[in-house]
Amino acid sequence: MKVLVLGLGNDLFRDDGVGLQAARALKAELELEKGASTDLKLEVEVLESPLSGPAILDLLMGYDQAFIIDAIKTGEGSPGEIYELELDPAELGLGRLEPSASLHYAGLPEALVLAWSLGLDLPKRLKIYAVEAGELSLGEGLTEKVAEALPKLLAEVRGEVERLSSVAATAEQA
């Protein structure tokens, strides 16, 4: 089973970099554990990307499961809050596409519907972790609240990956 953890964002725009930082940290953790007895029963790849919309399809192809980590500004939550969203291809059918929110690029839902319609080799399951951003202005480094949320975010994603791994291990034994 091939699993992708994809951190999206831009680390020149403060909290927009949270996905990239999470991906970087997770990659380092997984590298450290390579060869250890806790080896995951999965093939996990961790990527960082500033891309959006259909361009993300290039990165998603070829995996069974993907986790996407990104910043979000709902304007309602407090900075550092983590939202989780699972996308099921069956629910994103052809007829369910809303007009694009963007004049410039189609968003992730459009991209996914497109890919699934075309029968491209995309993850069968997709989970998105979005972190409420504090500041999204030009500058480096996360704001305090968002930085504080990183360990929790990492633990969540780690937990999901490990859960998948144990499912894979059980399947192997069976």
Partner: peptide, 30 residues
């Protein structure tokens, strides 16, 4: 109609094969 004016509407016009070609060509270029 608005509901058709999106990428799926485009696919309806050019066909699924053409749509796939666009994605795969872009991937090659990348």
């Amino acid at each position: 109609p608005k509901a058709e004016r999106n990428i799926l509407g485009v696919l309806g016009k050019v066909g699924l094969e053409a749509g796939k070609r666009v994605i795969l060509m872009r991937k090659e270029l990348r």
